[in-house]
Computed example of a mutant assay.
Amino acid sequence: MTATTSNSTFRTEMIEARRAPDQRRGVSGWLRANLFSSPLNSVVSIVVILVIARLIWPLLEWAVIDANFIGASRDACTGAGACWAFIGARFDSIIYGFYPEGARWRVDIVFAMLAILVAWLAVPRLPQKKWVALFALVGFPIIAYFLLLGGSFGLEYVPTRAWGGLMLTLTIAVVGIVGSLPIGILLALGRRSQMPFVKAVCVIFIEFWRGVPLITVLFMASVMLPLFVPGNIEFDKLLRALVGIMLFWSAYMAEVIRSGLQAISKGQDEAGKALGLSYWHRMGLIILPQALKLVIPGIVNTFIALFKDTSLVLIIGLLDMLAIIRAGLTDTNWLGFSTEGYVFAALVYWVFCFSMSRYSQYIERRLNTGHKN
C-alpha cells in the first residue's frame, strides 16, 4: 500500500528483507575464500603458485610447444620436445594389439556399446535403468564374446593370443570388476555366517588369496594349472588369467564389504526378523543396501587397484596396452623415445582411474553416504 502527497509517493509498509550480497561467488570470490583469506594464506598461495609455474612451464614446453606430433619414424622428431609421433604411428597396435585389421570394426562396436551402457547407467535422468543394467550384465557379455572371438555367425575366428592393447586391458578390467563384486559379497556374507563350515570355507578362501601376490596367481594359472588337469583338456590362457584375477580381487572385495556389514547395527537385522523376513530378504532389502553405501570408497579403491594391476598379465605372455607400448619401443625406428610411451600409458590409466574416482564421489553425494548435516 502506498500513500500519495503533493510532492512524493512513499510506502506505509515495511519492505521484505533481502539477502546480503554474497562476496564469495565467482572466480574472485573463490580465490578470496580459498587462497587469499588471510595475509599468511596469501603469502603461502603465492609461493606455491610460483613453484608450480616453475615446474609446469618446462613440462609444457616439452609436451606441447617444442613437441613433434606427426611422423613415421624417429627422423621426424628433430626438436627438443616430446616425440608424440611415436604414439600416432603405433596407435592402432596400442588400441587393438594384434587383432586383424579387417575385423577391428567388431572391437569398435564393443567399445561403443560399452560407452553407451556406462553413460546410460551413470546419467541419473535416463530412464529404464533396470533393463539397461540387466542387458549390461547378461546381454552385453554374450554379444561382446561372439563379436570379439568370432567363429560363428560368419565372423572370422580371432584367438585370444591375438588380443592386446587397450582392448585387452578393458576386457580384463571389466570382467574382473563385474565378477569380483558379487563373489566378494557372497564371501563377506559367508564369513559372517553362523554355520561353522560355511564360515571356515570363506575364511580359508579369503586368507589364502590375500596371502599370495597377484603375479604368483597369474603364474600359477598360466603355468601350473595345466599340469593338474588331463592332457586332453585345454584352458584358454586369457580365461585362466580372468579367473585368477576375479578370485584374487574377490577376496579383497569381501573384506571391504564385511567392513560395511559390521557398521550396520544388529537392530536392523532384528527388525527384519520381527517383520518375518527371511535371511536373504533381510540381506537384500535392509542390510546390504546400507552396507554398500557405506563402503563405496573402498569398493571403488579396489576397482582402481584392479584396473592398474591388469598390466601384470605381461608375466604370462598377454600383451596389454602397457606391454604393447614397451614392445613398440624395441623397434629400431623408435629407439630412445620410451618417455613418450610411458607418459601416454600413464595418462590413459589416470583418465580411467580418475573417472571412476569422480563418479564414486558423485554417487556418495547423491546417496548422502557421508551422513552430513
Rank of each mutant, 00 (worst) to 15 (best):
P124C: 10
A112I: 11
L117R: 00
C83W: 08
V107G: 07
T78N: 10
D75G: 13
W105L: 05
K130N: 14
E101I: 13
P141Q: 06
F135N: 01
I142Q: 09
S93R: 14
A80N: 13
G88H: 02
A112R: 01
I94H: 05
I70V: 15
G79H: 05
G79W: 01
I116P: 02
L126Y: 05
L117Y: 00
I116W: 12
I143P: 00
L121Y: 04
I109N: 02
R106I: 10
G88Q: 08
F140T: 00
I143R: 02
A72Q: 06
V107N: 04
W84F: 11
E101W: 08
S93F: 05
A89W: 12
W120H: 10
G79C: 07
L114A: 15
V118R: 00
W84H: 04
I142N: 02
V123G: 00
A89M: 09
A119Y: 11
I87Q: 07
A144Y: 02
F91H: 09
R74S: 14
G71C: 13
L117A: 14
L147K: 04
S93Y: 07
I142P: 00
A119I: 15
V107A: 14
K129N: 02
A103L: 08
D92M: 11
W131H: 11
A103Q: 15
V138S: 07
L121V: 12
K129V: 03
P127L: 07
L137Y: 08
R104P: 09
Y145W: 14
F86P: 05
P100W: 13
A144F: 06
W84S: 04
P127I: 06
R125E: 06
A76Q: 12
A112K: 03
I142F: 12
F140A: 11
C83Y: 07
I94W: 13
P141M: 13
L121D: 08
S93P: 00
I109G: 02
F146P: 01
K129E: 04
V132Y: 02
